[in-house]
């Protein structure tokens, strides 16, 4: 090891770190079951699959029920409405963020589904959102529909009475 020290005349001192922005492009291979779900978004529909053993409906479905270890074959179209099981208000900026903060990220349990997923909630004041709130999906214009959840612009309150806690507590 050398005990030579490196002297710099730059008043900012020596360089210890370099930011090197990188990007990653990848192909996403959806597989049979998820393809059905994604094509559903392209038509403005929520498509899930029912387990032949436990009868639970998965949206999105990854093609099998992790509990029973069986393939799912029965396709189910779900309604446009659901319940906010829980939520948080995001108020933190991060690289690549596409939504203006603060925003509400809700866990949405579609009517007839047995798995919730995260959805943006809008047309709702931050103070108004609550567990059990009833919501409906607002889709992008027909010509803008794509095979991804980006086809759902957001969820908004329907104004119906809140769902009873008992109806969604096992999905928390």
């Amino acid at each position: 090891m050398s005990d030579q020290t490196y002297v710099t005349s730059d008043p900012r001192g020596s360089i210890t770190q370099l930011a090197t922005p990188s990007r990653l492009e990848y192909f996403f291979t959806a597989g049979t079951s998820l393809s059905k779900n994604l094509r559903g978004y392209q038509r403005g529909q929520f498509i899930g699959q029912r387990c032949p053993v436990c009868s639970k409906v998965y949206v999105p479905s990854r093609g099998s029920c992790p509990v029973d270890g069986v393939a799912l074959t029965e396709e189910v179209e779900l309604k446009n409405t659901g319940t906010v099981t829980t939520f948080c208000v995001v108020n933190v900026p991060f690289a690549g963020q596409s939504i203006k903060i603060p925003y509400i990220a809700g866990q949405i349990l579609l009517d007839g589904a047995n798995l919730s997923f995260m959805g943006l909630i809008q047309e709702c004041e931050l103070e108004e959102v609550r567990m059990g709130m009833r919501v409906e999906a607002v889709w992008v214009d027909k010509e803008d529909l794509v095979p991804s959840l980006a086809s759902v612009k957001y969820f908004r309150p329907t104004g119906e009475p809140d769902a009873a806690y008992e109806t969604y507590q096992e999905y928390l």
Partner: peptide
């Protein structure tokens, strides 16, 4: 494609 870009870490 199957999830909304909401996660925020």
């Amino acid at each position: 494609p199957f999830s909304a870009p909401l996660l925020a870490g």
